[in-house]
Design a protein around this nucleic acid. Structure first.
Lengths: 197, 197
DNA sequence: GTCTATAAAAGGATAGAC
DNA sequence: GTCTATCCTTTTATAGAC
């Protein structure tokens, strides 16, 4: 199909779909709402993407990719492991400041259909053993705290993800709904999380 | 209404609704599926609880209560703060081993409708300042690590919640889908999380 | 490629018999 | 209290004109 012949480009639709899907999830999102946001008609959605499911798949794969930051780049730099770790935390904190709905979106939809994972990992080209082996060697060398490397990764991600995914809960319970203060706290996490390791 | 006149008790329906709602969430859950699981007819669901929304509210309030463990009990015991903290971690680990869908259920539904929080906190009688003040005094006394008490609580809960909420993701990525090993790891967290503090 | 109008399906809710 | 049958609304998906 010729791209020049498309007036409302796929990109416009995908932007709208991304916003609605990540905020509401597959089950709650409505095709009508996506069409409205894209400034087009419902029928046109089905013209570009045959079904809600197919549109969702596109959006979700892109979101899943975001969630697996390219930490491999950092690993090859001539810096020590603590700097790599600091960089990884920074990537997540920045990502979630920009896209706060991402964590709960990924978690919920994977829980809804875990079988989806296999295809995603293949398509996105994820290779966890790279980072695990790197951390293992650095731990053995005494550069990082003594800990199972998988547990190290899991702890870092836990500390990055939950404060964002559980934001309404946490900001209400612990910050008395002071959204400014909580937002600042989340940004500062770039440094405070690192103190643990 | 007379309880003796009920053959299929509310409890049976609530058990079924709890299982379906916590696993699939409000939007994905189907009244038909809840009825099937309870071994009854769809119409009977509406007889006991007028609507899906009302049935969901009952289930969700009960789930929300579970999520706010009664740590106040522990605080009044003549034990040091580190023991209280260890007890709090144990409560969460045990709860999530028993009800693994709880964390994502709470997080997702609160994100879907944050306004719900106010009513819930009133009904359940939550008072966060109790535990915050207790931890603050213990930190000042040097019993616990130097840290904003709210951040301390948030970190503990993050480390307890994410490994469960993100289980399919984490067990596939980092444990190569070895469910037995991952389950054992989750149980062991009762001790490993505590090492951080 | 984009629209209006409409079909088709799914799912929550009610009527009425027993 | 429990069931079968049915209604009604919502929402996805398609037909067909321009």
């Amino acid at each position: 199909m010729d791209n020049a012949s498309k007036n409302v480009s796929e990109a416009v639709i995908l932007d709208a779909a991304r916003a609605i899907f990540t905020e509401k999830g597959m089950a709650t999102a409505r095709m009508q709402e996506i069409a409205d946001r894209a400034g087009i008609n419902k029928a046109l959605l089905h013209y570009y993407f045959r079904s809600k499911e197919k549109l969702f798949d596109r959006v979700f794969q892109e979101a899943f990719q975001q969630f697996w930051p390219k930490v491999e780049m950092h690993m090859n730099q001539p810096v020590d492991a603590r700097t790599v770790l600091r960089g990884m935390i920074g990537i997540y904190v920045d990502l979630f400041v920009e896209r706060p709905y991402l964590p709960d979106f990924i978690i919920s939809e994977i829980n809804r259909d875990p079988a989806r994972l296999e295809g995603l990992m293949r398509d996105v080209g994820v290779n966890p053993s790279l980072i695990i082996n790197y951390l293992a060697s650095q731990i053995k060398a005494g550069v990082l705290v003594e800990m199972d490397p998988r547990e190290l990764i899991l702890n870092v991600i836990s500390l990055c993800v939950f404060p964002v995914a559980g934001r309404p809960l946490v900001s209400r319970f612990l910050w008395q709904n002071d959204q400014e203060a909580y937002q600042q706290f989340l940004i500062n996490r770039k440094y405070t999380i690192f103190f643990f390791f």
